[in-house]
């Protein structure tokens, strides 16, 4: 960043206080001759592009793929996506920063979203977030985020551990989840969405009028 010799108020939105770096070249569509893209990533993005009537539709899938490779949507990742899709990195960045699941800062690879929206917070979701952060401590491998409703309020309070929905959680589960992930195991098999039955029948049997 160039030195900005202006008064500062201390804003709190990342990016708002950043000037352009005037030493950089303008960011047009990256020339394939100048950007290296890992072969597998290129193939995956190209396959996605072929799946849609208009190639730009593949942008979100492409960013998912690049994030998987790079761990986050780094400038390098975005440039690679833009290069393969023949768009500007600006277009890709505009989309990447719009969606919550794209990480625009370097983060740990183990991603845990803890739902803190209404239904979960009514059942202690905020507390689970704190507990989860405590359980992971300062391990840089973990990326723990409070998240908006994940669509699993029946399991509230719940979390998505690398995409695996688990709940209802108690404080003590957080430690187990972190340990399991560190050991390379499933997050919390017994409380996973995979094994959760539908409430319908049980509800109707227990007290439903029908």
């Amino acid at each position: 960043m160039t030195e900005v010799t202006r008064f500062t108020h201390g804003s709190r939105i990342p990016g708002w206080d950043d000037a352009a770096d005037l030493r950089k070249a303008p960011a047009g569509v990256p020339d394939p001759a100048q950007v290296h893209v890992p072969e597998e990533l290129r193939a995956e993005i190209e396959a996605k592009m072929a799946a849609y009537p208009e190639e730009q539709s593949a942008l979100i899938p492409a960013l998912h793929a690049a994030q998987k490779v790079h761990g986050w949507c780094s400038p390098e990742a975005i440039e690679q996506v833009a290069c393969v899709m023949r768009i500007t990195p600006g277009q890709a960045a505009a989309v990447a920063t719009f969606y919550d699941m794209f990480e625009t800062k370097p983060v740990g690879r183990q991603t845990i979203y803890v739902c803190t929206n209404i239904s979960c917070s009514l059942r202690g979701g905020d507390q689970i977030l704190t507990a989860m952060k405590e359980a992971a401590g300062d391990d840089p491998d973990f990326n723990i985020r409070g998240f908006e409703c994940l669509g699993a309020c029946d399991m509230a309070p719940m979390a998505s551990v690398n995409g695996d929905f688990v709940g209802p959680l108690e404080d003590s589960d957080c430690r187990t989840i972190v340990d399991n992930i560190k050991a390379g195991n499933e997050a919390l098999a017994a409380k996973s969405l995979k094994v959760r039955p539908c409430a319908d029948e049980a509800g109707k049997a227990a007290g439903g009028s029908e």
Binding site: S119, R123, C153, M155, A199, D200, G203
Partner: peptide, 16 residues
């Protein structure tokens, strides 16, 4: 119907 929050059996129910 998805019922959640402060209920004892949160979950999905099919109702008429």
């Amino acid at each position: 119907v998805s019922v959640s929050g402060n209920v004892q059996r949160p979950g999905n129910y099919e109702i008429e």
